Measured scan of single mutants.
Amino acid sequence: RRRVRAILPYTKVPDTDEISFLKGDMFIVHNELEDGWMWVTNLRTDEQGLIVEDLVEEVG
Rank of each mutant, 00 (worst) to 15 (best):
E32V: 13
E57R: 08
I19S: 01
M38I: 10
L43W: 05
K23M: 11
W37K: 11
D35F: 12
L22K: 11
V13L: 12
R5I: 11
H30N: 07
D17C: 12
I7Q: 06
L8M: 14
I7S: 06
L55D: 05
M26H: 11
M38F: 09
K23C: 09
A6Y: 02
P14G: 08
D35W: 11
E47Y: 04
V29G: 00
E18S: 05
R2Y: 07
T16K: 04
D54S: 13
D35E: 11
T41Q: 09
F21I: 04
G49R: 00
K23S: 10
R2C: 09
L50K: 15
V13M: 13
W37I: 06
N42S: 09
T16D: 02
V29D: 00
G36E: 03
D54T: 15
K23W: 06
V29H: 02
H30F: 09
T11K: 09
I7T: 09
Q48K: 12
P14K: 10
G60D: 13
P14I: 09
D46Y: 15
E32L: 11
F27A: 01
R5S: 06
R1D: 11
V4H: 02
D54N: 12
L50S: 08
E58Y: 08
L33Q: 10
V29N: 00
L33I: 09
L43N: 05
R3K: 11
E53N: 14
G60H: 14
D25R: 01
S20W: 02
D15P: 04
V4M: 09
F21D: 00
E57L: 07
R2M: 07
V56F: 04
E18I: 06
G24Y: 07
G24I: 04
L8C: 13
N31L: 15
V40Q: 00
L43R: 04
R5G: 02
G24Q: 04
R3H: 11
W37R: 11
V56P: 01
L22Q: 13
Y10S: 04
V4K: 05
L33G: 10
R44W: 03
R5P: 01
V52C: 14
K12I: 03
N31I: 14
V59Q: 07
V40P: 00
P14D: 10
E47V: 06
T16N: 04
G60V: 14
K12R: 12
V59T: 08
I28Y: 08
G60P: 12
I19Y: 01
G24K: 03
V13I: 13
V56K: 01
W37H: 08
E34M: 13
P14M: 09
L33W: 12
I28G: 03
E58D: 13
S20G: 05
N31K: 15
F21L: 03
I7P: 02
L50H: 05
N42A: 10
V59M: 12
N31S: 15
N31C: 15
L8S: 14
V4D: 00
E57M: 09
Q48E: 10
E57G: 05
V29A: 02
E57N: 06
I51N: 00
P14L: 08
I28T: 09
Y10T: 02
E32T: 13
D25C: 03
D25A: 02
D15C: 13
G36H: 08
K23P: 09
P14N: 10
S20F: 02
V4S: 02
M26G: 04
L22V: 11
T45A: 03
A6E: 00
H30W: 15
V4F: 09
I51R: 01
K12W: 03
R44A: 06
E58P: 11
W39D: 03
I19H: 01
L33Y: 13
G36K: 08
L43V: 11
F27L: 05
H30D: 07
D54Q: 11
K23I: 11
T11M: 11
T41E: 07
I51H: 00
L43S: 06
L22Y: 09
G60A: 14
L22S: 09
D54R: 14
L33K: 09
R44V: 04
R1S: 14
D54G: 13
D25L: 03
V13Q: 15
E34A: 15
G24C: 09
H30Q: 08
R3V: 14
I7K: 11
D17H: 13
W39I: 06
F21Q: 00
M38R: 04
V59N: 06
